[in-house]
Design a protein around this nucleic acid. Structure first.
Length: 617
DNA sequence: ACTAGCAAGT
């Protein structure tokens, strides 16, 4: 093999295209000389580092022939994959005329390097050039559009694709559906799906997965499960759920606490001999833990041999959720021994476990260890957990001191957490201080309304409280309405606070609820009206409490199920309020039933008038 | 050459 040095001397004409320093660095041994351009291709592929690509580039120029679009494309593509996207751009701009392959290579590279704006601007350049976008161009353009949340462009691209007739391509279709999911246009995504001629192809599982996952993310769990359950029925059409599908479906079950649906999917996984890999194991552990079945979660966890940080993380969260802080801590120690370093989320889980268990000093130690032993910078969430930890334990002065010594500016959540702790421990002085801080922060934090609204209500500024609440609804950024799910005979029923009129059993539910509440009152239940933060009269307040979604779900479950059946499981998307918590205790006595409520923070097991959280939550 | 999934307070 000849070396570069042995090549005939070139005139200065091609060499001027490269800088002298590049030429000087041109090696003698890395790239063997070649005589035809196609022989450069394998060299480009074999290059491990960008330097080699630059050398090959130089050599191509030194060969003296006008280099081809093929080589330019290969160079652009190879360098973009080696984290040298700027070099890709420079090669791209040197070559003329630019054809579709060259554009595609660059746009793909830009997307791979998360340069979405630049990718789109090159797409525009492409439209202005002679090169026409093809089925290889659109997936990346659509992805960029989704990442940048450009909803208007999304529709324009869809039209463009429709007009040029590449829509029928299954890759383009998946990208289109995925884009609509990401820009929260689930309706259009479903439309793409419904109209897809590939829907029943064996390779279309991907399209189904995109849709199912989109429904989960968007919160339309019922639709997600409906789609999932349609898949196995289509075996003759070759559409079958794969790893991705079951993981998405399990996460949907976890979200709404649909344990029976989750069990069916677990059975499906076993019957169809899916390998219990880290992702499937993680999804199963999470599903069981969030559905209240921590023992099954632990069982699946021990069966899952391939574990990544997410697997450990969901197990630790699971223990935390169930108030089992010893197991959470033990699990994290096991994780360390297995050689996995905890990340910031694992610490959130551990601190949450300590908070629920009232383990103040352990929590503070863990917080210190996170910073000192693992060099993890605490986030606002970590700080607010510590405020919560101290605040719940009634150590309000320490909490305040902690906030004042924080290295970052405390946000609304921090002051709101302190405020809640003060309310629980009836410390008016610090509560007022927290409210002052909350009000000071308002203009700067349009995103977090709940605490603020509570703070206004606490000082009797009802109009301000209402204003904040309605602006929260206008912008659609609030907690949204409170909902509860309860599963009866494998069917998930959804209840929304203050809105039981649409339910077909509305009257019966209301009657049952009335019955529970009057029975509870006789046993000493006092409606805790201080939990309702609207400016309404006492009697009306009680009515508003009466329509909290978890109460509706409870009444419904008591009507629908017989006393001998399994515990009543209710899943709520917000924190259970003190009043509902108290009523659940009485209900567990009167009905002789075990009631399990999962709120956003943790599980509450009500039995014989007590709760597993020990009223500490 | 391209497309999809699992952990976290609003």
């Amino acid at each position: 093999m000849k070396t570069l040095a042995a090549l005939p001397k070139q005139t200065s004409a091609p060499a001027k295209l490269i800088s002298p320093s590049t030429a000087a660095r041109t090696p003698t041994r890395i790239a063997p000389a070649v005589s035809t351009e196609s022989q450069f291709v394998p060299l480009i592929h074999a290059s491990k580092v960008v330097l080699h690509l630059r050398q090959i580039h130089a050599q191509i120029l030194l060969q003296g022939f006008s280099w081809s679009s093929l080589l330019a494309t290969q160079l652009v593509s190879a360098s973009s994959l080696r984290n040298a996207i700027d070099y890709s751009i420079s090669v791209f701009s040197q070559y003329h005329p630019k054809n579709v392959f060259l554009f595609n290579a660059l746009i793909r590279g830009l997307v791979k390097n998360a340069r979405f704006e630049v990718a789109l601007s090159h797409f525009v350049l492409m439209l202005r050039s002679d090169a026409r976008p093809d089925r290889m161009t659109y997936p990346f353009v659509l992805k960029s559009t989704a990442q940048l949340f450009l909803r208007r462009l999304a529709g324009e691209l869809h039209c463009m694709i429709f007009k040029t007739g590449v829509e029928l391509d299954s890759f383009v279709e998946v990208s289109l559906a995925d884009m609509y999911v990401k820009i929260e246009e689930l309706g259009y995504a479903l439309k793409v799906f419904d109209e897809s001629p590939h829907r029943l192809d064996s390779r279309s599982t991907l399209l189904w997965n995109v849709l199912i996952n989109g429904c989960c993310k968007k919160g339309d769990i019922v639709k997600a499960m409906e789609l999932f359950h349609t898949m196995p029925g289509m075996l003759e059409e070759n559409v079958r759920p794969n790893d991705f599908t079951v993981v998405s479906a399990l996460s949907a079950c976890a979200k709404i606490g649909a344990v029976e649906a989750g069990l069916r999917i677990h059975k499906y996984i076993k019957d169809n001999r899916f390998r219990l890999n880290a992702a499937i194991g993680t999804a199963l552990v999470d599903m069981y833990a969030k559905c209240g079945n921590i023992e099954s979660a632990s069982q699946v966890f021990s069966e899952t041999k391939e574990r990544d940080i997410l697997t450990w993380s969901v197990m630790i969260w699971g223990w935390a959720l169930h108030g089992r802080f010893q197991q959470a801590v033990q699990c994290s120690k096991q994780m360390l021994r297995s050689g996995i370093k905890p990340d910031e989320v694992v610490f959130l889980a551990l601190l949450t476990a300590c908070t629920h268990a009232g383990q103040v000093d352990l929590g503070l130690n863990i917080f210190d260890s996170m910073r000192l032993d693992y060099q993890i910078d605490p986030s606002m969430k970590h700080y607010s957990l510590i405020v919560d930890l101290l605040g719940r334990a009634g150590r309000l002065n320490e909490a305040l001191k902690f906030i004042e010594e924080m290295p970052i500016n405390p946000d609304l959540v921090i002051w709101g957490t302190l405020f809640c702790a003060c309310r629980a421990h009836k410390n008016v002085e610090i509560a007022e201080f927290a409210v002052t801080k909350l009000l000071e922060l308002e203009p700067k934090h349009p995103g977090s309304y709940v605490f603020l609204s509570n703070a206004y209500a606490a000082v009797g500024r009802w109009e301000d409280a209402e204003r904040v609440r309605s602006s929260m609804q206008d912008k659609g950024v609030g907690k949204g309405p409170g909902w509860s799910h309860v599963e009866v005979d494998g069917q998930v029923h959804r209840f929304v606070a203050g809105d039981n009129a649409h339910h077909k059993d509305a009257n019966e539910i209301h009657q049952k609820l009335e019955e529970i509440m009057s029975g509870a009152r006789k046993q000493g239940y006092m409606p805790g009206t201080e939990w309702v933060l609207h400016n309404i009269e006492e009697e009306e307040k009680e009515d508003a409490l009466g329509s909290h979604s978890e109460k509706l779900a409870l009444a419904f479950a008591l009507i629908q199920t017989s006393p001998k059946t399994a515990p009543i499981r209710i899943v709520k998307n917000l924190r259970i309020c003190g009043d509902c918590h108290s009523l659940m205790k009485y209900a567990s006595i009167m009905s002789q039933r075990e009631i399990i409520v999962r709120d956003i923070k943790r599980f509450h097991h009500f039995k014989d008038g007590t709760c597993s959280c020990g009223d500490y939550w």
